[in-house]
């Protein structure tokens, strides 16, 4: 419990900055929506004539003139990408930072088992991700209420659930990597999040690359699919959670045997 509290304290600034930044961007976009709605006929025409660019962001299947269509694309890019970066960053440095900043010797010369260190850090990670998502969701809901829209709440909840799962998956995978790393972890975390995002864009553009959806968590967090199906793709979610579990298992396996320098 001491360690969990310590981890949360250490990570509070990062959490606050990321939550505030993502929340701020989403709020701005939502406040722009009423103004844009009137001009949406032209905008939709424009977007639908942009070929694969439209497909890349799923805008060929979403109506930009409705709040849910607008929200799925905006949220998909702001919370999807921002949340992915945040989750990857904090996860990939969770274990590695102790050795990078050379605090591992201090921590592990106390009577705490390696397993409890890993568990506390994992718990802190999940708590931070949950807090960020709850705050962002509440903020979005408040903004929607302020601009006086009555959107399809089920779809909005599904979108947020998908981004939450996406962050958990990336966090799990990056946490696993964190156990193996000593330095340079942040770059790897950002790289993984960015790579997954672009894999999904490639999968959207080309039918041949559709299989990439299985690999990238952005596959099941695709706004267009969620809104048009009214549900998440359970199979992709399960595969994603399996990746996360493998990452976590690897962290337990490796970090409890690792030589600490």
């Amino acid at each position: 419990m001491t360690l969990l509290k310590h981890e949360l304290k250490q990570g509070f600034k990062t959490l606050a900055i990321w939550t505030a930044s993502i929340g701020f961007l989403i709020a701005i976009c939502l406040f722009l929506f009423p103004e844009m709605k009137g001009e949406m006929d032209n905008v939709s025409d424009m977007f639908s004539s942009m070929g694969s660019f439209t497909a890349a962001f799923g805008m060929d299947r979403l109506n930009f003139g409705t709040l849910i269509g607008f929200y799925a694309v905006e949220c998909g890019n702001i919370l999807g990408l921002g949340g992915a970066f945040f989750a990857s960053l904090i996860a990939v440095s969770a274990l590695a930072k102790e050795e990078k900043e050379r605090t591992a010797e201090f921590l592990l010369s106390h009577p705490v088992s390696r397993v409890s260190v890993i568990s506390s850090k994992l718990a802190a990670l999940v708590v931070q991700i949950v807090v960020m998502n709850v705050v962002i969701f509440a903020l979005s809901a408040a903004c929607i209420a302020v601009i006086g829209e009555e959107p399809a709440w089920k779809e909005i909840c599904l979108l947020h659930l998908a981004y939450f799962l996406l962050q958990l998956e990336l966090a799990g995978v990056c946490f696993g990597l964190s156990a193996f790393l000593r330095r340079g972890s942040l770059g790897i975390g950002l790289g993984i999040a960015a790579m997954m995002y672009f894999l999904n864009i490639i999968a959207n553009i080309s039918e041949k690359a559709e299989f990439l959806k299985v690999i990238t968590p952005f596959g099941y967090a695709e706004g267009a699919d969620i809104v048009s199906n009214g549900s998440l793709d359970g199979k992709l979610v399960l595969i994603g959670m399996a990746f996360a579990l493998i990452g976590v298992a690897a962290a337990y396996f490796w970090y409890s045997r690792k030589d600490i320098h």
Binding site: Q10, E101, R102, F106, P111, V112, S113
Partner: peptide, 17 residues
């Protein structure tokens, strides 16, 4: 863990959070 409970360790380089 039981050992570390009764040991006080002073590392050569003191680094903290």
């Amino acid at each position: 863990q039981k050992i570390l409970d009764c040991v006080g360790y002073l590392p050569s380089e003191a680094v903290f959070y």
